[in-house]
Write a protein that binds this DNA or RNA. Structure first.
Lengths: 188, 188
DNA sequence: TGTAGCATGTAAGCCGTTACATGATTGA
DNA sequence: TCAATCATGTAACGGCTTACATGCTACA
């Protein structure tokens, strides 16, 4: 059993991970619910895939036996609830045991623009950074709510650590951006 | 002139930006040189596109008149040197003036794995984070060399600010990861 | 009665990568 | 003469998004 088939994308493993942390493993999650959980946690450290991709990935994982599902048909629609299989858990654990080859990828539209700010001048650089500070505060608030919902339960110790990591990151990012603002020539 | 044609990808703008900072604007840069500069700076804040994509993008920018090139034929090969056009500079400035809609995207394989570390235990979590600290040190060193090469010249003030941002980011990341390590149960 | 949220999917297409193929130049 | 580096590209494909299409359920 558990034929290795081909490699999975990191996003596939991420979705498997969401299914593992499913609170009610007997029932499983719908694609819609998986997407909601991805929006809540995954988007801070990876990406939250589009709805359509969630379905595509779950379908693929089902075909390769890493997840299973129960189907309920209501009228013309079917509703599927997905659960990770023993194979799926094993694959996920193997993946977690592998050395991490890749460094984090940061796609930072603000830093990219600041790099070229010589073309548009310090006023634009300033608003760029100020706008970013505002976005950062919103994000931090979103993540803080996630962190609070985790509490101090031992079962979610690692997710809590990762959330704390994210909060610290946002704080340091805000500090750095503020310092950069201080380095810009003043308007007055 | 400067027909607006369609939207460019952020990566296209990034490449245009590399051409703007070309030290010798009369001669221009080859695709190969563009790739080298991307590897040097762009990869820290965006992505360094594959060689093949660099050529594809430059070709597209040339077709829409945002870059021009001079061609030298040597034997069976042609060597093209690309320069940004006035249109290209204008488009780039317009893009820089637009409000930034998107928040940075972080694809963090280490945080993603730590999230699920409950499946594999604290020892694996520890090596995960320790390995990451090592990678981080290497990266920081790479970026530090870039920073040093920029010096304090006014012409590269903004690139220097962005490099400093990156260095501060790596430092704070290392600090946070060290704190997380301290929270893990000790092996002994 | 209509709209918001729950729920599922297909199709088209872009962005980007890896693999592959080729050739020129320089120096050990 | 062989390897490294400079240099240019094509082909195939994967991952992911947007746009589109559909239908059920609850509630205002």
């Amino acid at each position: 059993m558990c034929g290795v088939s081909q490699d999975l994308s990191t996003t596939s493993y991420a979705l498997l991970g969401l299914l593992v942390f499913d609170g009610s493993p007997s029932a499983g999650l719908t694609g819609y619910e998986v997407k909601q959980r991805a929006d809540k946690t995954l988007r801070f450290y990876w990406v939250s895939p589009a709805m359509s991709q969630v379905y595509t990935e779950l379908e693929r994982l089902a075909r390769t036996g890493l997840v299973s599902y129960t189907e309920e048909v209501a009228g013309q629609r079917r509703a599927r609830r997905f659960t990770i299989t023993a194979c799926g858990q094993q694959r996920l654990q193997e993946w977690l045991a592998e050395p991490v080859e890749s460094f984090p990828i940061l796609k930072h539209p603000v830093a990219l623009r600041l790099l070229m700010a010589g073309l548009v001048g310090p006023d634009r650089a300033r608003t760029l950074l100020q706008d970013y500070l505002e976005q950062l505060a919103v994000r931090r608030q979103d993540l803080l709510e996630v962190r609070r919902s985790l509490g101090e339960r031992a079962a979610v110790k690692y997710p809590a650590m990762v959330a704390d990591w994210g909060l610290d990151y946002y704080d340091s990012e805000a500090r750095i951006v503020q310092q950069l603002l201080d380095r810009l020539p003043s308007t007055g």
